[in-house]
Design a protein around this nucleic acid. Structure first.
Lengths: 345, 345
DNA sequence: GTTTTGTTTGTAAACGTTTTCAGAATTCTA
DNA sequence: TAGAATTCTGAAAACGTTTACAAACAAAAC
């Protein structure tokens, strides 16, 4: 139970126990084929009985290590369920490799983003996965200049060729709005995200393209946005409902906006989908727990995370490999909030 | 733009630039008052012009450092919005201290929990915040034996005196069920979480206590649980609804169960609260976005996170200090799903 | 019995810090 | 002005690894 303070085993202690030098122990650990089978056996035994685990800090100080890496993840908003999926995708692969994930949630605050990048840099992470807060994120560009391994998610970098994994935002938005149009909706509002984020513009583009395709007017009073957060969803929905001629349908640009919008709609007692239809970007595993079940554009966050870390490992292996750009398709999950029961069409 | 590979500044380079030894630079960095003001100035200038940032890996290898710590966080399920609040509480304080948070999400898998604890240990984190997967978690106990700084959230450890921060689960559950009873509900079901988690039993106890207080029968067929996840919520709700005499109200033991339950209830077209009332443990910031708005027991996750990291810092400072047990009250957020409009009572 | 070759092992430097201890520089005291 | 006291600084060890290099040893070749 309470023996006095046992020091954790180190290379040195294992070496002494096995009667060899620390170099030999290190070689055994790293699978160097040069060691004689019998000494290897002896060392392995010593490792086992001493319960030795390598000290990753020392490994990282000395040089980056093949397995058991440290990955830095910098994301804009951990409250957004989409990012949870991304994190899970990353984490699952990392787990399989014995890697660990250092998470920085910068809450859309550029200063905080910088600070996390600094911390991660000085923690000597082996690579970064970042959703830059906008497309001209100088700090992330510098990181790449300094030849750190970086993979961007959601958004690329304007002045920099990087690996990027993202959804097809424009097409996703287009499909959603087209669906609403086909259902007969004409006055379709769009609650956009923060305008400094490239994603926002891609989704707006998809929205506009759909309206154009069906010769519907693009009405600027129906395109509103402030930030990409819950409260904006609430406030902007209120604005829209207060319009002399409120929209028949709303297309929200993300998760949080959708939930905010729903709160306001329910508060006002406006019925979905009879009085107003709603389709949101970002599906959630509990979208069907909403009443009515929410029609949403499903981004494959888990898949995006998986692809991102895959690219990152490859980048770490081969820093010179040309940048890859992976665009993942979205799926429109048709449920009831858009005005039709699924399968009725 | 593309100068050749600039090495990051180190103590050595700064020392050379300032014409002093690395020891002096280190002293300046750590605010040792012994250095002469003029040399201090010179060093500070060199630090600034070289853009030096200390290498935290080296710091950690040498000894744990006062600010800029590394905190290991081990949680059971990152999909549970409650834990997101906890993470945010931790992260916000950590950010203020320049600390970083290493996150391990073990998805209720004990093996994965062990592995994360191992990784974090070998990353030499300065302290751990853990929600152990059950109350006899040997691995976490060992960690404490080895005099690591550990704070538990949600659940204490049976054989070990540790710092714990948790909600008053029994009282929270009691209040929720009592509220349902006062509203006139008699057949109240309880969908429990995983029975190996202590929390589950505390919530069951609260549920039972409330029934007892009002002389209502405790009906075992109405107390059902499997795992603490979304799918269990769906499945068990189906079972309850299929009962010859279904319950008038459901009290769900967490977030995920609530959402699962709602999905099934809506799918069956059962109306809330007229045909069935529901109250859930765990509030969510978008609980009012549900239709009807969800009545829920609010755990102060953010606060719990903040308290936990506070305790952790104190524990790191003073490993010998007696263990603290912080119980945070819950609040019943009365909305519509329990059968009454708020304020109408 | 040398020399050559090949295999296996050990020594020591390096990574970037913190920190002890002793030494240098300065000031004070007489 | 010498010695003591005080203030400041630097050299070097330590943390636990990886790895280049050299040393040791055995086996094979002449």
């Amino acid at each position: 139970m309470s023996t006095s303070q046992k020091q954790p085993a180190s290379l040195k202690s294992v070496a002494k126990m096995a009667g060899v030098s620390i170099a030999t122990v290190s070689r055994v650990l790293n699978g160097d084929p040069v060691v004689k089978p019998e000494t290897k056996l002896a060392v392995e035994k010593a490792i086992k009985t001493s319960g030795y685990h390598p000290n990753r800090v020392a490994q990282r100080l000395r040089s980056s290590y093949k397995s058991g890496r440290l990955i830095g993840l910098v994301i804009p908003d951990i409250r957004n369920p989409y990012y949870i999926d991304v994190i899970r995708g990353i984490e699952e692969s990392a787990y399989a490799n014995g890697s660990a994930v250092l998470i920085g949630n910068f809450s859309q605050d550029p200063e905080k983003e910088k600070m996390y990048i600094n911390i991660l840099k000085s923690e000597s992470v082996d690579g970064f996965i970042i959703a830059p807060h906008h497309g001209h994120d100088k700090y992330v560009e510098d990181l790449i200049e300094q030849t750190h391994a970086v993979v961007c998610i959601d958004r690329g970098l304007a002045n920099c060729s990087t690996d990027v994994v993202k959804s097809d935002n424009e097409r996703g938005a287009f499909n959603a709005v087209e669906h609403l149009i086909k259902l007969g909706h004409k006055r379709i509002a769009h609650i956009t995200g923060n305008l400094s984020i490239p994603t926002t513009h891609e989704r707006i583009a998809g929205y506009v393209a759909a309206l154009r395709k069906y010769d519907l007017p693009v009405d600027d009073t129906l395109i509103r946005g402030r930030a990409s957060d819950f409260q904006s969803g609430i406030d902007i929905t209120a604005e829209l409902l207060d319009l002399p001629e409120p929209p028949e349908a709303i297309f929200t640009a993300n998760n949080l906006l959708t939930l905010g919008s729903l709160e306001k709609i329910h508060e006002r007692g406006v019925r979905i989908p009879d009085e107003i239809a709603i389709v949101g970007f970002d599906d959630m595993y509990w979208a069907a727990s909403l009443n009515p079940a929410l029609t949403a554009v499903r981004q494959h966050g888990f898949e995006i995370g998986k692809r991102a870390i895959e690219l990152l490992y490859q980048r770490i292996e081969d820093p010179a490999r040309p940048a890859a750009n992976i665009i993942i398709n979205t799926d429109l999950m048709v449920r009831r909030s858009c005005g039709f029961k699924p399968g009725t069409l």
